[in-house]
Design a protein around this nucleic acid. Structure first.
Length: 204
DNA sequence: ACAAGGATCCTCT
DNA sequence: GAGGATCCTTGTT
């Protein structure tokens, strides 16, 4: 099977909501490991749940960077989380990758995840970054360019689920309840099924 | 230098 | 389904 093409910068140069939805079924490759994205969340401009809400700092600068740039940060001092910058260069919006399904390198993934098996391997943002061996040095890395972490095209998803995002109780109610989380339907590779409902099929 | 914040994970009823 | 563990990075004195 031939290598899937990388996603283009134009793919990421759209509203985070559109990118988050369209990333379901796409793939991430880093060395021996390839995974298929099964769950995402959009963090948009003016979003009180987003890290961009207090303005640009050295830590979150990648969110404002060119579309397709990686934004990795440490949560709870332990977990690293992968985001991909969206919209135009200079706009503070991104998509968080929350869950994935193994495509290649299962042995490596399991080893990095402490020998876990099944959906526990990749159902959660901290787990995805751990399986892909990502750290803060990955910040600003361009996933549309060859080498290192790459975002690749993948099969079109059969069905999508949508629902509110996870872990953002601090946000304004409108943002907290906004259905800006997307997941692949009919798969166990999703972190929290709660609150997700099937999305209507998009018009062709 | 230091205090404080966490877009989670895991175990246990 | 709920509650606590856990410790690194950042922004500010």
């Amino acid at each position: 099977m031939t290598d899937a093409p990388r996603l283009t910068r134009a793919f990421f140069a759209r509203d985070a909501l559109d990118v988050a939805r369209d990333l379901i079924g796409k793939r991430l490759r880093h060395g021996p490991v390839t995974v298929e994205i099964t769950e995402t969340e959009a963090y948009r401009v003016g979003d009180t749940a987003a890290h961009s809400r207090h303005g640009k700092t050295a830590r979150n600068a990648a969110v404002w960077g060119p579309p397709g740039g990686a934004y990795v940060y440490v949560c709870y001092g332990i977990h690293r989380m992968l985001n991909l910058s969206t919209n135009e260069d200079g706009v503070g919006a991104c998509v968080l990758v929350r869950a994935a399904r193994p495509v290649a390198g299962l042995d490596v993934i399991a080893a990095r995840r402490g020998g876990a098996r099944g959906p526990a391997l990749l159902t959660g943002p901290g787990k995805v970054a751990q399986a892909l061996a990502l750290d803060l040095a990955m910040n600003h890395h361009d996933v549309t360019a060859p080498g290192g972490l790459e975002a690749l095209d993948g099969p079109a998803p059969a069905g999508l689920l949508v629902g509110p995002r996870v872990g953002i109780d601090y946000a304004a109610p409108a943002d907290r309840d906004a259905p800006w989380r997307f997941a692949l339907a009919d798969t166990p590779w999703v972190s929290h099924r709660r609150g997700l409902t099937r999305a209507p099929e998009a018009a062709p």
